[in-house]
């Protein structure tokens, strides 16, 4: 809830600049390694927008541990549920972050983990539903101190 309020406040404050930049950010191409992961996960099918709410800080001071929460709209019944959710970070040396597998027994398609981000980049989540449909969401996180060591 807090994040949404902050985002709204930011959108209001940022005004025109944000309005013009937002559509570009949302449509940004996923680059390099991440595209291969997506291809493997989706089998080349196009993922639709929506259903997923991905919660990440806009600015992560420490890339070693960035909290990530995901929530996907679904009744989570035996007939209709979220099966797998792949999370990718397109600027990491290895784009894969995690693949979450839910079942109807999960009750809600909701999870939180803590991830490492090497640099400022896009975090992408793709959900595969039990009927095979795909949904995708992405968010840019600014990272002050990278979290992949070295």
């Amino acid at each position: 809830m807090k994040a949404i309020n902050r985002r709204q406040a930011f959108a209001l404050g940022g005004g025109f600049v944000m309005l013009t930049l937002m559509p570009m950010a949302a449509d940004a191409e996923v680059t390099g390694d991440a595209a291969k992961w997506i291809e493997k996960f989706t089998g080349g099918k196009q993922a639709a927008k929506g259903k997923i709410s991905l919660d990440l800080p806009e600015i992560a001071e420490n890339g070693n541990t960035v909290p990530l929460s995901i929530n996907i709209e679904s009744p989570m019944t035996a007939d209709s549920y979220v099966k797998d959710v792949m999370i990718l970070a397109d600027g990491n040396p290895n784009a894969g972050v995690a693949t979450l597998s839910f079942t109807p027994l999960s009750g809600k398609a909701e999870a939180s983990i803590r991830i490492r981000l090497a640099t400022t980049q896009n975090v992408v989540a793709i959900a595969k539903m039990s009927d095979g449909s795909l949904f995708m969401e992405q968010k840019t996180v600014k990272v002050t101190i990278g979290g992949c060591g070295g």
Binding site: A98, S101, I115
Partner: peptide, 11 residues
């Protein structure tokens, strides 16, 4: 109930 495959990008 729930499972996940984790990559090195997990803290």
């Amino acid at each position: 109930v729930f499972s996940c495959a984790l990559e090195p990008a997990i803290s």
